[in-house]
């Protein structure tokens, strides 16, 4: 699933899809943690998933705010539109 998120990140130009892909990747990482925690009977895995949850929430909030601003600016959700800082 992590790999799928990765593919989404690379393929889609739409910022919305990129953000969703990132969500998928975070979720996959969390799943891996929980699975590992369950496998070895450790609470740490679930603790880490909680942290990932917090990170995901924060990331989505900021990411969507940025997305809104970019849309206002470029009238498009094209991630490649914001390439003004290229070398």
């Amino acid at each position: 699933m992590f790999a799928l998120g990765l593919i989404g990140l690379l393929v889609r130009r739409n910022l919305l899809f990129i953000l969703m892909s990132i969500e998928v990747m975070l979720n996959a990482a969390g799943l891996a943690f929980v699975a590992a925690g369950a496998r070895w009977g450790q609470a740490d895995g679930q603790v880490m998933f909680l942290f990932i949850l917090a990170v995901a929430a924060a990331e989505v909030a900021v990411g969507l705010a940025l997305l809104l601003r970019l849309y206002h600016r470029f009238q498009s959700l094209d991630a490649d539109a914001a390439d003004e800082m290229r070398g």
């Binding site: 969500e23 979720n27 998933f49 909680l50 929430a57 989505v60 969507l64 809104l68």
Partner: peptide, 25 residues
């Protein structure tokens, strides 16, 4: 996997709160 609480959180936070944000946007 036995992580019941995590399952609840997954539904509430991910499928609930975060998705609502996406839908809203």
């Amino acid at each position: 996997l036995g992580a019941i609480f995590m399952a609840v959180l997954e539904v509430v936070v991910y499928a609930g709160a975060i998705m609502v944000l996406f839908v809203f946007v």
